[in-house]
Amino acid sequence: MDFILKTIVEVLKGIPNTILISFIAMAVGLIVGTLFAIIRLANIPILSQLIIVYNSFIRSTPLIVQLFVLYYGLPTCLMFSNDHFHTHFNPDMFPPLFIACIGFSLHAIAYLSESMKGGLQSVDRSQVEAATTVGLSTLDTYRRIIIPQAFGYALPNIENQFIMLIKGTSLAFAVQVTEIMSVSHVIANEGYRFVPVYTVAAIFYWLLAIIIEYIFHKFEYKTTRHLSTNQ
């Protein structure tokens, strides 16, 4: 029992980074992903094709490979710049947590852009026409009418992506980030008690997912009521 309590206390120390990575990736993913979705629906030449290629690459390659590319690739690029362009970058200037946040954000963008694309396509076009009729600019139409409704339609997919990010942070230990999985890995290796330690870690991931589901379901209920009144 004492070992379990000690494990719980230690694993709790990894939760802040788990939440931080997930929230940053979700925020960046929603903002950039929405922009990507708008560009694709507008069918802007070259940019649309580049986004399609980006989404395909990110969605078709393992997240851990993407993290390794960033973790080892960024210092390599900085050293290349120092050697060939006489710059003075520190190859270790990017801490592991920063690299993890970048990696998970890039990953989230590809998935959330597809979710927001579906949400944008679900918005009734008659509302867009009405906004144009009353003199709203394109920016105001997107900001006040299209994007809020698209977010509501995409909310279930956004919730699933958030939970996937929470679970996916378990891979961040591979790039030296202290989070739930990395703390659990150290404790398990020290005490050779893998089953109880990883069970505690699994329970923490489960609890985080339950909290996220609860928050999103409350938000989804209010959003659904708002969308139904607008139809």
Rank of each mutant, 00 (worst) to 15 (best):
V134L: 15
D92H: 02
F162P: 05
L50V: 10
F151R: 14
A130W: 05
T61P: 00
V186Y: 05
V9Y: 14
I44A: 01
E159W: 10
V175L: 03
F36H: 00
G73K: 00
S113L: 01
Q127Y: 09
S182N: 04
F94N: 08
V195N: 11
I210A: 12
T178A: 14
K222Q: 06
P96M: 06
I24G: 01
F36G: 02
I31H: 06
F85Q: 13
L74K: 04
H217G: 14
I166Q: 04
I15G: 03
P96E: 05
D2E: 12
I146A: 03
L47G: 11
R225H: 05
V123S: 11
M79W: 02
S81A: 12
N90M: 06
F151N: 07
N160S: 10
I211H: 13
P16T: 09
T18R: 04
K13D: 15
I38N: 04
S115K: 01
T199K: 14
I8T: 09
N17E: 15
A174I: 03
K222E: 15
A202V: 06
N82R: 13
G73A: 08
I52K: 09
Q121L: 11
Y72F: 12
V11N: 01
L63H: 00
G29E: 06
L106D: 04
K167T: 10
M1I: 07
T34E: 12
V9T: 11
L63D: 05
H226T: 05
L155A: 15
I15N: 04
R40T: 03
G118S: 12
F98E: 00
Y221I: 12
L47D: 03
T178M: 11
S105C: 05
S113N: 02
L47N: 07
S137T: 10
L136F: 14
G103Y: 01
N160P: 06
I39H: 04
A37Y: 04
L155D: 06
A154H: 10
S122G: 15
H84Q: 12
L208A: 11
E114S: 11
G14T: 02
V69N: 02
L47T: 08
F194A: 13
F85A: 06
L67Q: 04
V11C: 12
N157G: 08
T229K: 08
R143K: 15
A108N: 12
I19R: 02
Y71E: 09
F23P: 00
E220T: 14
C101K: 03
S228T: 09
V53A: 05
Q121G: 10
T61D: 00
F89K: 01
P156R: 13
E179R: 00
L208S: 08
T76S: 15
C77I: 07
N230H: 11
R143I: 14
